[in-house]
Design a protein around this nucleic acid. Structure first.
Length: 835
RNA sequence: GCGAAAGUGGCGGAAUUGGCAGACGCGCCAGACUUAGGAUCUGGUCCCGCAAGGGGUGGGGGUUCGAGUCCCCCCUUUCGCACCA
């Protein structure tokens, strides 16, 4: 082998060989255990970034380990290729988005191949091609059939400058991202929604199955879904004789209700205004509150404001009449859009009523019975009811139960559950996405496209201006169609789907990416699913990772799959940061991976990515750090190339059955080296199964190289025989194969093997060899480390105790004092307690 | 405000179940080989101290023979949700 490590040359050589040998192709093999490693698919923005490199280096280490363990590993990749950036580039350059997208995909594919990740490239999935997006349309139709896709008027963010709808992510501090001085206005448009709220309960419940998901992600999802159990109560608007329904989680406090608040957009307000003595004035005031409520959505801490309507509501529990106010902090979209105000027991109500001088009445006392003299804040905990008519004396828990029950039997309310999650609005007034397969017919109304007519193709030839309504609306040939129902002239829906739809099921498609008759092949999914390990950034903790779970549940309901959760284990990696902040073009702190591949080679970049921090933590990029990684690989290469020739022909011991622990023929140097090697192997093996602290695995391979370098002179005088050298170096190389596969394969070949390390069975560590022969035990006196003693591995406690007490230095510290007790921790330490 | 995670040398980080704090790497210092070193190798590097020794894991208390690790209080940072009734 060459004496000089030339990463570019080696990496090119092995990537070519791997491809020729179809090393990473995975096929269904009934009876053989599978392992599905999935990394979040990239958006083809043009160049891979360090976040990708980190993500895929982690996934690749795992995929390679599982392969070497003998599992049938599926490790695919694809392109999340619809979306705004391509469309914006298209507007800027007046070229079709497809052109950019496919060019970017080609470029990124080359870069990923340059990284040498073990992908089965035959399974590449691209979401922006009709062969893929037709199934988005198919899923949409299935959901429409089941009432899970529906249309309603809803509020959107609208930039008056661009004359277009903005996604939530494009609203920055209440303004348009492209016109930073232009406040976004809200506009009502007809939009398509997917009824994820129908699945809220199952999304929560099935979290029980997600035992291998990070707690953090589950908590975020739980908060996002936001289930809260409460009671709906009808207050009667006396003057109009119609009910005003409120939602509360604390019906036990209702005797303390002194006001009822309605949101500024509550539908009942129109009637109140109409019946008001001063309708003009009320209308103006409600409008004022409405504006302030809209501002409240953008700002953080808006002051509470409100206005009395002049109307009153009757509390059904005590018959009391309380004023109805309109308040700026009441949400229209949540609950019933109206709440009862209990200032004594809700902090917001307390603040409001203090400001507006409304009465405050205590109805809950702390369970210890102590009453506060002066209320300075609301008492919001559970307690015991007072001043609450027949419920006085009950605990809050009991009262909620009883009062809800009474509301139900007397017909003025009911127990109910509210969710914070809203239905998923998927309409985008954009071009570069999946057309929503619906048709509007003057005679028949809203009609779905026939399944047999899918896909509804996105027209290729289109001029994008970036202004006005949906770009598709300006393509007459697209819009004009015939009604699937009556055959008469009709118009197509011109909105496209949110790209999160694309990514909600792409990982199913990998299992049979070219199947044409159905979205997914049952046979393939049955074999490969669930995804054993999903790896991606924490930023997807809610949106994508909820949508994906939702889709799977729908797929189960329509009989496509037989399980409810698609991903068994989730891992969220940390970000790559530099100089304290996330790498971004605007900050100018981006490190380009391809430049690093040029300079150091892909193996070095991978090694550094895995070594610099444990994978779940943020990783701070350091230019000198990567130098260190490069230095290490050079050192490994140098060391191995130096001895390769001498050990090449020696028969490999690793390929045989594990040997007994201590072979009498081994020299002390050999035992020491083998012990280290097998300790490293043990640590890496255990770590790959569970902990994934690759940084410590790599640290250990460094220690092994250090140990080898120290003992190396022994080779010349026969203290280290070639077979031991070979075994040590083999363990080193196979461990590195997980993290730096190219150099590993090259070195493996240098050690006299042929073919890729991926095809080598992961070696089993020799438990006996990994055990120390002699223990160095720290001895403490009164908890302070005073000396270390050496004991034989088999020594019993009595013997060790005697040795410790007899130790000269220890004796000095005991110094005639009385030994109260001696604590012996097996294999760890001795602590002598003296008085 | 609520929720979560985290605070260890000059830096990234080790210490997996309460048991030798600082592995490994970066940086730095000294030396060797060199025409040269941004190559390589050797030694050193938590703080105070010549040493013996002492101190030390954000701060304060506690449990324990023993605490980076467990408990209580406080501080700081990051992330998520932010008037969800």
């Amino acid at each position: 082998m060459d004496t000089q490590y030339e990463p570019q040359k080696i990496e090119e050589k092995w990537q070519k060989l791997w491809a020729e040998q179809h090393l990473f192709d995975a096929d269904i093999a009934p009876g053989r255990k599978k392992y599905y490693v999935l990394e979040m698919l990239p958006y083809p923005s043009g160049d891979i970034h360090m976040g990708h490199v980190r993500n895929y280096s982690i996934g690749d280490a795992l995929a390679r380990y599982m392969s070497m363990k003998g599992l049938n590993v599926l490790h695919p990749i694809g392109w999340d290729s619809f979306g705004l950036p391509a469309e914006n580039a298209a507007i800027k350059h007046q070229r079709p988005p497809a052109e950019f997208t496919f060019a970017y995909i080609d470029r990124m594919r080359r870069q990923l191949k340059r990284l040498g990740v073990s992908y089965d490239w035959r399974r590449e999935v691209t979401t922006c091609v009709p062969e893929y997006y037709r199934w988005n349309q198919w899923f949409f139709l299935k959901m429409y059939e089941r009432g899970l896709a529906y249309r309603k008027k809803s509020r959107v963010n609208w930039c008056p400058q661009c004359e277009t709808v903005l996604a939530n992510e494009q609203v920055v501090d209440g303004c348009c991202w492209r016109h930073e001085d232009t406040p976004v206005v809200e506009k009502d448009l007809e939009q398509w929604f997917l009824k994820i709220t129908d699945y809220a309960e199952r999304l929560l419940e099935d979290m029980n199955e997600l035992v291998r998901w990070p707690e953090r992600v589950l908590t975020m999802q739980q908060n996002w879904i936001g289930r809260s159990k409460g009671t709906e109560v009808d207050f009667k608007v006396e003057e109009l004789d119609i009910p005003l329904r409120v939602f509360t989680t604390r019906v036990d406090t209702i005797f303390g209700c002194t006001v009822v608040f309605a949101a500024a957009e509550h539908p009942l307000l129109e009637k109140m205004i109409a019946a008001s003595k001063a309708p003009e004035k009320l209308r103006d005031e409600v409008e004022r509150i409405k504006q302030s409520a809209i501002r409240a959505r953008a700002e953080v801490n808006l002051e509470k404001d409100g206005v009395a309507t002049g109307f009153t509501a009757r509390n059904p529990y005590n018959g009391e009449q309380v004023p109805i106010w309109v308040a700026n902090f009441v949400l229209t979209e949540y609950g019933t859009g109206a709440v009862m105000a209990v200032p004594a027991h809700d902090q917001r109500d307390f603040e409001f009523c203090t400001t507006f001088n409304l009465p405050i009445r205590t109805v809950i006392l702390p369970k210890d019975g102590k009453r506060q003299e002066k209320l300075e804040a609301a008492f919001t905990e559970y307690g015991k009811l007072v001043n609450s008519g027949p419920y006085t004396g009950l605990t809050s828990e009991r009262a909620i139960e009883r009062m809800t029950h009474d509301a139900e039997s007397d017909g003025y309310g009911k127990g109910t559950i509210q969710y914070r999650i809203k239905d998923w609005g998927i309409s985008r007034q954009r071009y570069w996405g999946t057309p929503i397969p619906m048709v509007y017919c003057d005679a028949c109304g809203v009609v779905p496209v026939q399944e047999s007519d899918l896909p509804v193709l996105l027209p290729a030839d289109i001029r994008l201006t970036g202004t006005g309504q949906s770009p598709l609306a300006s393509v007459p040939e697209f819009v004009a169609t015939t009604c699937p129902q009556c055959g008469g002239p009709a118009r197509r829906e011109t909105d496209t789907m949110d790209t999160f739809v694309d990514s909600s099921w792409y990982f199913y498609r990998y299992t049979d990416p070219k199947i044409e008759t159905v979205p997914i092949s049952k046979e393939a999914v049955d074999y490969w699913f669930p995804v054993d390990q999903y790896i991606g950034g924490i930023e997807h903790a809610i949106l994508h990772l909820i949508y994906m779970r939702f889709f799977t549940k729908v797929m189960k309901d329509i009989g496509l799959v037989s399980f409810s959760e698609p991903v068994a284990r989730l891992f969220t990696q940390g970000m790559v940061i530099k100089d304290g902040s996330k790498m971004s073009k605007s900050k100018g702190n981006v490190v380009d991976p391809t430049a690093m591949f040029e300079k150091y080679g892909a193996d070095t970049v991978r090694l550094y990515m895995l070594f610099a921090a444990p994978p779940e933590k943020d990783l701070d990029w350091s230019d000198t750090g990567i130098e260190g990684a490069s230095r290490f690989l050079n050192r490994v290469y140098r060391v191995i190339s130096k001895h390769a020739e001498n050990v090449c022909a020696v028969e490999s011991v690793l390929e045989k059955k594990p040997r007994p622990a201590a072979l009498p023929g081994y020299t002390p140097e050999e035992r020491k080296l083998l012990r280290k090697a097998h300790q490293v192997l043990r640590h890496v093996t255990e770590d790959m199964e569970e902990r994934w602290h690759f940084n410590t695995d790599i640290a250990l391979t460094m220690e092994l190289v250090n140990e080898f370098a120290e003992l190396e002179p022994g080779i010349a005088d026969g203290k280290l025989r070639p077979e031991v050298v070979k075994e040590t170096l083999e363990i080193l190389v196979l461990t590195l194969a997980l993290f730096t596969p190219h150099i590993a394969d090259e070195l493996w070949e240098g050690l006299g093997h042929s073919g890729a390390t991926l095809r080598v069975a992961w070696p089993v560590y020799n438990a006996g060899l990994a055990v120390e022969e002699e223990l160095e035990l720290p001895v403490q006196v009164n908890g302070k480390l005073r000396n270390r003693i050496h004991v034989a591995i088999g020594a019993n406690d009595e013997e060790i105790r005697r040795l410790a007490l007899a130790d000269e230095k220890i004796a000095q510290y005991i110094n005639g004092r009385q030994v109260v007790k001696v604590i012996m921790v097996p294999q760890k330490l001795i602590n002598i307690v003296v008085k």
